[in-house]
């Protein structure tokens, strides 16, 4: 049995990494790709004294980066996609709401950045500044994502933990 950090991490934490990627992306196939890409990114750099625990932290960070990079590329392209070829490319939130309402289907109603912000804030218990650092965004932007996400998730899941640092959004929320 291989005992190098990659083998150990894959064997002992593979499902946890998949679960993290699954929660972030909302799609099992995407999650598989994210885990694989994140492992490649992490282990392509040789690091001395690299333990599986160290590696897991790197891989989780890389999963997030890979996903957000993909979302940004997708958004860039969706702006120029031909409208006649794009019917049905926007998920109808009502469909998801009508489905079994659990956390994953609730998260599926969020825009990608909102979902990542919500996962980091509510599932990983990071603070808003920490979420902003992970997402490489301004705190104000993260607060806006969290405000919108909180409103949508509260409708589906009930009250969420109080977020003192979130501003009260006036008027129409922008996502």
């Amino acid at each position: 049995m291989d005992d190098d950090p990659l083998a150990v991490l894959a064997r002992e934490r593979g499902r946890a990494l998949f679960g993290y990627a699954y929660l972030v992306s909302g799609d099992a196939r995407t999650a598989e790709d994210l885990v694989q890409d994140a492992l490649v990114r992490t282990f392509s750099r040789r690091r001395a004294g690299f333990t599986p625990d160290d590696a897991e932290r790197y891989v989780r960070r890389a999963i997030l980066t890979c996903y957000l990079d993909g979302v940004r590329r997708s958004q860039r392209w969706s702006r120029v996609r031909h409208l006649l070829g794009s019917s049905g490319d926007v998920a109808d939130p009502a469909v998801a709401v009508g489905a079994v309402v659990d956390v994953r289907s609730a998260l599926a109603t969020l825009a990608p950045q909102e979902r990542v912000a919500a996962v980091l804030r509510y599932c990983e218990d990071l603070t808003v500044p920490e979420v902003a650092a992970r997402m490489e965004l301004a705190e104000g932007t993260v607060k806006r994502y969290l405000s919108t996400a909180t409103r949508k998730l509260t409708d589906l899941l009930g009250p969420l933990p109080a977020l003192e640092e979130l501003p009260v959004m006036q008027g129409k929320a922008r996502s």
Binding site: G19, Y20, L23, V103, Y122, C123, E124, L157, G158, L160
Partner: peptide, 11 residues
């Protein structure tokens, strides 16, 4: 909200 807090382990 417990389900959200448990979401990682559930996934």
């Amino acid at each position: 909200n417990d389900p959200l807090h448990r979401a990682l382990s559930d996934a």
